[in-house]
Design a protein around this nucleic acid. Sequence first.
DNA 1: CATATTGTTTAGTATGAACTAAACGTATTA
DNA 2: TAATACGTTTAGTTCATACTAAACAATATG
Lengths: 176, 176
Amino acid sequence: MDNQLSTARGHFIQGMSRISNFWGFPRAMGAIYGAIYLSPEPLSLDELVEQVSVTKGAVSTNVRQLERLGMVHKHIQLGSRKDFYIAETDFWKIAKGILREREQSEFDAALNTVSESLDMLDEADDPELAGFYKERMGAMQGFFQTLDSVVSTIMKLENLMSLSALQKFISSSDKS
Amino acid sequence: MDNQLSTARGHFIQGMSRISNFWGFPRAMGAIYGAIYLSPEPLSLDELVEQVSVTKGAVSTNVRQLERLGMVHKHIQLGSRKDFYIAETDFWKIAKGILREREQSEFDAALNTVSESLDMLDEADDPELAGFYKERMGAMQGFFQTLDSVVSTIMKLENLMSLSALQKFISSSDKS
DNA sequence: CATATTGTTTAGTATGAACTAAACGTATTA
DNA sequence: TAATACGTTTAGTTCATACTAAACAATATG
């Protein structure tokens, strides 16, 4: 392949790997997505092994994770029994997938913990301290709930079009 | 202390520790914030050591990190040379702090990597593939830029009041 | 000046997660 | 049926990071 292009691709893939790591995913996962994303043709597992320099096992598990998140799609090539993969290019959709898959579960757990702690305060001996706890925990619970509802509402927006409307709204309501 | 209350507090702190871990911060950091957040009085380093069962060194570094993020504030008690800490209770402000401190830097790096990769495509031999790369990388760059501007605009909103307005707007523009 | 009180720094340790290498299961083909 | 071509699973290794324990620096106090 063209040297210019492969250098650029390497740089890009490296960047994806870094981003992936930053968001708490394995480095290889980002790299693999990057490779698939930059390929005009569906890629097989072996081609990925070659392009990302990672063993088959790692590619296998990472690509499966990518699929679960809706970041890549399996593409069955008739006549071949290999699995091929193509990239999901709708990043908005991807964001939704990740949010749903990952934040939700752990986020709910967090919210529950706070609620549970609040419930434990019910029949406490020290009413003053209990009141203080209630206030604090309640405030945090409220914040999480707000955050949750905002995020989930934003996630309902269908496309980036509505996002620009959102931005306009935000700018217009910004009084600072 | 009241047994009810200390159980509830333990549960809460444990939850904070978990959340902290989820967001990519040390577990102890969340626990420490939780302890400070639930204390009516400013807490000293030694008190924190006792309450979260972590060594002084760890508390020292973690509490400093918390301060950098604007999650706690040093409170100098006249007459004592200990450092006391109180919790920042404006979660909106905290979110801003974290976003600014952390996402921004790493996020910018990510954006730069994509831009750099794009620049490398300029004089490539294979115009067809180069075109494809440009298209893909450009799309990703666009997404990141949009995301960046949305987040940064949202972060300009001063308080949770405007958030509820935001929610109303979102619900009203949701056609799905 | 010696001692105590505080917070920080450092060297070493433990833990968890991601990867490698290789065995494995399963289907396909010769 | 043997051999090949896949993808998956597993056991072990590597690596990063958060922690502990203890030395340390700085300041105050007797």
